[in-house]
Design a binder for these strands. Structure first.
Ligand SMILES: [Zn+2]
Ligand SMILES: [Zn+2]
Ligand SMILES: [Zn+2]
Ligand SMILES: [Zn+2]
Lengths: 157, 157
DNA sequence: AAAATTTGCGTTACATTATAACCTAGCATT
DNA sequence: AATGCTAGGTTATAATGTAACGCAAATTTT
């Protein structure tokens, strides 16, 4: 398990896996992965970097889809509802999720130099958060954990 | 140390402490806590809830200050630079900081029902984050840790 | 004190991000 | 075919945030 989006890898696999997972998921859930949705998801997965709604919009508009904001925001909402993408709050941008569906707690490591962003699950961090919350009587619903810094490669460059 | 912003408390103390700390800090640093800045900080501390830039702007405008966005954004920038407030990214809103100055890592617990938000420092959480980052060769510069959920009081109501 | 520099902020204009509300066409169920 | 549901087209607007210019007061230098 040395795989990381910060390391070189055959990225076609990432995209194809993501799309296949989405196909399967939508089939199972009885929801439709329409051409627009499929293309938006593909664009989101084009790089391991969060992409802004209006960047996406420009891309799909240039491909003949409708170019008004609701088009892309509706699509983003759909994927967020179904756990196929996340919003990176500190960037107002969106990134694909390849973790097991259903709500889960992730930490995003965001390189401020190259933009590459890795989503990780870490039970130890979750555990400490849960501990802190329990002590306060606080019920955790939705953690936003986003770490900006420098990835290994950018640090050494 | 049972004090928490989620519990009833004499809030005048919070506001006065914050303003006095800011006075002292600005004095020490040789920067100016102008009437506009002082009032903005006071408004931010009015409640233990993040406040939006345009809400602030409306407040100060109604008090005779200039009503154009740069007025408030410059002031917010000033306080963020000096560590006297934080931006809550997941709300696009701003909240006062009463912790020791200088950059520090905080976790924000945000009640989705009442809006009250508590900033905490927790070395165990920081430690686990540092551990994860170290394993990746990632250099942490700026964590954003914001937990939405229900405070004790709202959970029991 | 006069001159030079920095700082705070007034002002205008604009950029970016996101949503509300209404409508229509296609698909799905009966 | 009739009905309801879903996806998305369309228009308009809301909410959040910046760039750029200028001036006047405060601070520093001469
Ligand atoms: Zn990849
Ligand atoms: Zn990098
Ligand atoms: Zn208080
Ligand atoms: Zn509450």
């Amino acid at each position: 398990m040395a795989s990381s989006v910060f390391l070189p890898h055959n990225h076609q696999h990432c995209v194809q896996d993501a799309l296949r997972q989405a196909d399967t998921y939508c089939e199972e859930q009885g929801v439709r992965l329409t051409p627009l949705r499929r293309r938006v998801l593909e664009l989101i997965w084009e790089e391991h970097k969060p992409i802004g709604a209006y960047d996406l919009l420009a891309r799909i508009a240039s491909e003949g889809f409708n170019s008004a904001p609701p088009t892309v925001y509706r699509t983003l909402d759909f994927f967020i509802q179904h756990g196929l993408i996340h919003k990176v709050e500190s960037l107002n941008a969106y990134i694909g999720c390849n973790h097991e569906q259903g709500s889960h707690t992730s930490v995003f490591f965001i390189c401020q130099n190259c933009g590459v962003t890795e989503e990780l699950q870490n039970p130890a961090i979750e555990g400490q958060l849960a501990l802190q919350a329990a002590g306060m009587g606080f019920q955790i619903n939705h953690p936003t954990l986003e770490i900006k810094g420098l990835c290994k490669a950018c640090r050494h460059a």
